[in-house]
Design a protein around this nucleic acid. Structure first.
Length: 584
RNA sequence: GCCCUAGUAGCUCAGUUGGCUAGAGCAGCCGAUUUGUAAUCGGCAGGUCGCGGGUUCGAAUCCCCCCUAGGGCUCCA
């Protein structure tokens, strides 16, 4: 290449990497077809940070196979042969892919008279139906690594045959590859499943698959999260309700869940009647609303419900805390008049922004999902409501994209996404309009003129599932919770046991302010006590020795290694306390 | 649900082609030590080798079933 990679613009880099990764997929396909002549090639696109290629083979690939394939790929790359494209007619193309039903299917989906391109390298030893997007020659694939194998359905549809996929990554230099591997390792260190274990936050037991048990430490964090949300609810005028766990199936028929959500629900039988365990709170919220007659003066009515939900997720899709079968949400339903929608959603987004800031999540991005093909409600209502949502996003200068057709059947929605500390993006909050629920449950309010009107329902969650949010937060913070969330906020480390009495004194003082504090009374040396506290990621360590005892002070070490010797007890108490109260 | 991989002490892991009472470190308990910013020393105790079945003189190890967990299952020539 004439221009050096490092001089490329971000966009050029991306395109170059994509081409290189796609080229690597071709090289992978050549290696596989040479080692396994019966293998049928299918698709091999570049993906974020790498590429994959799906093959139809008799037996799944083994790690040994990957080694052989890697070797052969390196040989092909070393030969540095050119990628060459050619155009053929569709008829000729069918001749070329004969016997490969996957490629035939791809050809069939293409326009009638279009010309089809084939790309080859290794001087024609391998050729593949491909729209293009390669580097000039195989030698430009500087550094690659095959990562894993996996079963994958043709076109992602489980009714199709299962293919064998090989994932790989490729980079413009050895250093870039290494950096990428480091990034993966860093992510693994932050894995909430690992940290959850080492910090004693939660565990799983096969006796209740995909349902977390929260230990005292994890429970403290969840309670603090809930307390925080409740404080915001107080500020933003929400009312909290508590609703039942299981409902007669009649309810789920009425709400539509029996029709649309059946396979994700758990059912129990009581007195020969069928009951469903709630997977969502909305029908219960509707019942609460309907339990009284409402005047327009009551609206908007914001009903929060932390009720525990159960969803029967398919066995292969559950994952740590981020996809579980039993969880609670900071869920609420707002019942309002149509002309209150805008204010309500703006209000909610304000609260959402405020809360994300508290958790040090920046760069919120929104997605506005518009009407899907299958939907309820008249066109006018959709037009109006989509316009309202778009207005809100525009007016407040929120960063967002539009997803046409992705809305729920009952209304358009806005989802909030945030990147975490190492750049991975998570979907957290959501706000959805619902025109269906008021209909199904015949919800009404009495208008100023005495007429009966239908309210609009807004579903909204800020943090989403609290379990999932905790998982995300653990990875975002790498387990270093801010003081207000830390299960143990400070630990006193007496150097010898003659410092114990003074330590108790400090302990009582902090305890009386409701600070979660411990004394390390173990028969260990100070160094070991510090190490233990560090490993537990306790934000404050108070070292107590002769100096502190005689001057009635404490020496403070924070978990990031900052040391301050002999500061006044009142000062440090104030500091810790204000961090907690301000949720800093 | 489907494909692959894995499951040994509370945790992290050894356990070579089937072969002695299944090992280690950490954690735990007991004892000694009383120590200034990331591991003091010694001892003790701890295991249905995920569950069930089979092969074998003999199974953590080989085979089958089940359970659970992990990596995946259109970022579309």
């Amino acid at each position: 290449m004439s221009k050096k990679f490092k001089d490329f613009s971000e966009e050029e880099k991306n395109i170059y990497r994509q081409n290189m990764r796609h080229s690597a997929a071709h090289v992978l396909a050549e290696a596989v077809t040479k080692i396994f002549p019966k293998a049928k090639v299918t698709l091999g696109p570049p993906i974020k940070d790498g590429f994959y290629y799906d093959f139809e083979v008799e037996k799944p690939f083994t790690p040994e196979n990957l080694k052989d394939i890697t070797k052969l790929m390196q040989k092909i790359i070393n030969k540095n042969s050119l990628f060459v494209g050619r155009e053929v007619s569709k008829a000729d193309a069918f001749e070329l892919v004969k016997g490969n039903q996957y490629k035939e299917e791809i050809l069939e989906s293409m326009e009638e008279d279009s010309l089809v391109t084939f790309w080859s390298h290794s001087n024609g030893e391998f050729e593949d139906l491909c729209r293009g997007g390669h580097v000039n020659s195989t030698g430009e694939i500087k550094s690659f690594k095959l990562l894993s194998t996996a079963g994958a359905y043709w076109r992602g549809d489980e009714n199709n045959t299962m293919l064998q996929r090989i994932y790989g990554t490729a980079w413009e230099s050895k250093e870039a590859l290494k950096e990428y591997i480091n990034r993966i390792e860093e992510a693994e260190k932050r894995d909430h499943r690992k940290l959850g274990k080492s910090l004693n936050l939660f565990f799983f037991d096969p006796i209740a698959p995909a349902s977390p048990f929260f230990l005292p430490n994890g429970t403290i964090i969840l309670s603090e999260l809930e307390k925080y949300v409740k404080d915001l609810y107080n500020l933003y005028d929400y009312k909290e309700v508590i609703t039942p766990q299981i409902f007669n199936t009649e309810l789920w028929k009425r709400s539509g869940h029996y029709e649309n959500y059946l396979e994700n629900m758990f059912f129990v039988s009581i007195d020969k009647k069928e009951f469903g365990v709630k997977p969502m709170n909305c029908p219960a919220a509707a019942l609460v609303y309907a339990s009284e007659i409402h005047s327009y003066r009551d609206l908007p009515l914001r009903l929060a419900d932390f009720g525990r939900l159960h969803r029967n997720e398919r066995s292969g899709v559950t994952h740590g805390l981020t996809r579980v079968r039993s969880f609670s949400q900071d869920d609420a339903h707002i019942f309002c008049k149509f002309d209150q929608i805008q204010a309500e959603i703006e209000n909610f987004l304000d609260m959402l922004n405020e809360s994300y800031k508290t958790f040090k999540f920046d760069n919120i991005r929104f997605e506005l999902s518009l009407r899907p093909e299958k939907r309820v409600g008249d066109e006018n209502t959709w037009n109006e409501s989509e316009k309202i949502l778009k207005n809100i996003l525009d007016k407040n200068n929120y960063k967002y994209s539009m997803q046409s057709g992705e809305g729920a059947f009952y209304g358009p929605k806005i989802d909030a996404f945030v990147p975490d500390a190492i750049g991975r993006e998570w979907q957290l909050g959501t706000v959805q309009l619902d025109f269906s629920l008021p209909e199904r449950f015949s919800l009404e309010y009495i208008e100023e003129d005495g007429s009966r009107q239908k309210p609009v329902v807004i579903h909204r969650a800020m943090l989403g599932s609290l379990e999932r949010f905790l998982g995300v937060l653990i990875e975002h913070l790498s387990g270093n919770f801010p003081t207000w969330l830390s299960p143990v906020q400070a630990i006193i480390i007496p150097i010898t046991d003659k410092h114990l009495d003074y330590s108790y004194d400090i302990y009582k003082q902090f305890k009386s302010k409701n600070i979660r504090i411990e004394i390390d009374e173990s028969n260990e040396r100070m160094n070991a006590k510090i190490r233990n506290a560090q490993l537990r990621k306790i934000p404050y360590m108070f070292i107590i020795g002769d100096n502190e005892m005689s001057s009635k002070t404490v020496s403070v070490r924070t978990r990031n290694g900052k040391e301050t010797s002999s500061i006044s007890r009142v000062d440090i108490l104030e500091q810790v306390n204000s961090e907690i109260l301000n949720r800093f």
